[in-house]
Design a binder for these strands. Structure first.
Length: 487
RNA sequence: GGAGGCGUAGCUCAGUCGGUAGAGCAACGGACUUUUAAUCCGUUGGUCGUGGGUUCGAGUCCCACCGCCUUCACCA
């Protein structure tokens, strides 16, 4: 602790003590019937008699003018000026006023009028102290600039960086819209386990944990897929879950170790069903974020904007491959040559692995979208049904927007015999932890009882929120992203 | 993991060629009953990320480490 901090703390602690001496509880208590500041701001300041209002909020600014203090208080709906005059506020109120600091929480009762400079103001006749802030708050003008400081003090970031609160509120709105949409479509929201004995449904390294009483190793889920499909077997024809998944991998502007996935499954559908659904779902969400129903379906992103006007482009994996790489994806010799040209190590790698490495290298960034890329090399898709007339192609699509994979969908593989084989097939060129060749016998057994043919869809909610709120880093759409602990 | 950048007061930031550590806001004292980043007068506040090294002298140069950011790798 530096001396400076001690000075700040001492000053605030001293005021805390003075409040106690005034018989004021510096930690406040119940304060009923205060109105959101946004509502108060909507009232008519010219009304006769003036509106009597009660507000509660945090002091963000103060202008002291002798026997009058002007303080700006803030709540999560807005900010308003409060006039605290020595005569108007009463003897005790004036003593409290002497001991206010920036960052304290107060409640005020008073009338709503404009000052002579036209500022909407609560002229307080009663001041209720609600909570002391013992720490100094960020600069009232400079705000918070240091990224690490913002992340480690997200509670302050919500107060002092308006965009942070705005994104948090939009995220809630986006997820609520998704739920409303799916509920209206007849989907059932379910909850499946987070702790898995086998971390299946995706290719990712899991977090490992341990259950003491059973003395077994458990994994935190890396996907929702396999349990939701078990529910299809159980006759729940349309199910979804919005849940947290955990992947023990790198952190980047597009990756957080825990993130939120939407997965949904529809019996008797296929990947084309899912394409239509995805488009309708996201368009519904975009509409909720637009100012009015007639606004064009466009949202700003980075330097440009994203046009969500349907119908979205639909392009096959093979045609994009041909277009951007210049060879057919089933041309084994051509693919190998192209891979080497791009510096990709080819020895010992499966053809489908090479194809996809090339695709990621040369095509993904260019997919500004929204564009549905469909019909993937089957080797990469062990949970996907193969095309009836082309065994090497899987009925899968991914939705790309701004070069980001946003959604991933299949016609689900419901053939237990093929499923068992693909679980056992270790693709050459993929390290074990990246492989989906993890046998889940219980899941295969479920398929053996008969899973209806189905379409399934996964959407990365965090990335969707990024795209819809013009946010460049996943850490700003997650309130508390993972940080290295302070020592 | 590789490469590059950054780390100075509570917050936001300067700090030139290596020569006594700076500003605004905040805080403290004073004036002020309609201010708007209020103003005015005065004051306090520093392990310059940490540890070494070079030097008469290091915030500044060198090395190592820590943290953050960017980028690459990784993330089917």
């Amino acid at each position: 602790m530096s001396d400076a901090l001690n000075t700040f703390e001492a000053s605030r602690a001293e005021k805390l003590q003075r409040l106690k001496e005034l018989q004021i509880d510096p930690w406040g208590g119940r304060f009923d019937d205060h109105r959101p500041i946004r509502e108060i701001r909507a009232l008519d300041p010219e009304a006769e008699p003036p509106h009597q209002v009660r507000a509660a909020g945090r002091i963000l600014q103060r202008r002291v003018q002798g026997k009058v203090h002007f303080v700006d208080i803030w709540d999560w709906t807005g900010r308003i000026q409060v006039y605290l005059g020595q005569k108007q506020i009463g003897e005790l109120g004036w003593k409290i006023t002497q001991n206010l600091d920036l960052g304290d929480l107060i409640g005020v009762d008073g009338i709503l009028k404009k000052t002579r400079t036209g500022e909407l103001t609560i002229f307080a006749d009663k001041l209720t102290f609600l909570t002391k802030s013992l720490e100094p708050h960020p600069d009232k003008w400079g705000g918070m600039q240091d990224i690490e400081y913002r992340l480690r003090h997200r509670y302050l970031d919500l107060i002092y960086t308006p965009e942070t609160l705005d994104r948090a509120l939009k995220r809630v709105k986006i997820i609520r819209t998704i739920r409303n949409f799916l509920d209206n479509e007849g989907y059932l929201e379910v909850e499946t386990p987070v702790l898995h004995a086998i971390a299946g449904g995706a290719a990712a390294r899991p977090f490992v944990t341990h259950h003491n009483a059973l003395n077994i190793q458990l994994y935190q889920r890396i996907a929702l897929e396999l349990h939701l499909k078990r529910l299809l077997v159980g006759g729940l024809e349309k199910v979804y879950e919005i849940g947290r998944v955990f992947r023990n991998e790198g952190i980047s502007p597009k990756h957080n170790p825990e993130f939120t996935m939407l997965e949904l499954y529809q019996a008797y559908g296929d990947y084309h069903t899912m394409m239509d659904l995805t488009e309708n779902l996201i368009v519904a969400v975009v509409r909720e974020l637009l100012p009015d129903a007639n606004a064009p379906l466009k949202l700003p992103y980075g330097q440009g904007e994203i046009d969500f006007t349907p119908p979205w482009q639909r392009a096959s994996y093979a045609e994009l491959f041909q277009q951007h790489i210049g060879v057919a994806m089933d041309d084994r010799v051509g693919v190998e040559q192209a891979a080497r040209k791009h510096g990709i190590v080819t020895t010992g790698k499966d053809h489908d692995v090479l194809v996809h490495e090339l695709f990621e290298e040369c095509v993904e960034d260019k997919l500004q979208g929204p564009v549905f890329v469909y019909d993937y090399p089957a080797g990469l898709c062990p949970l996907t049904k193969r095309k009836r007339d082309a065994e090497h192609i899987a009925e899968r699509f991914e939705l790309y927007i701004q070069g980001m994979e946003l959604a991933n969908a299949y016609t689900e593989l419901n053939d237990p015999i093929t499923q068992e084989q693909t679980f056992r097939t270790q693709l050459a060129g993929l390290p074990e932890e990246e492989s989906m060749a993890r046998m889940d016998e219980d899941f295969v057994r479920a398929l053996r009882y008969g899973m209806p043919p189905a379409g399934g869809l996964g959407i990365g909610i965090d990335r969707l929120v990024m795209l819809l709120t013009n946010t460049q880093t996943i850490r700003d759409v997650i309130l508390f992203p993972l940080l290295r602990p302070e020592k």
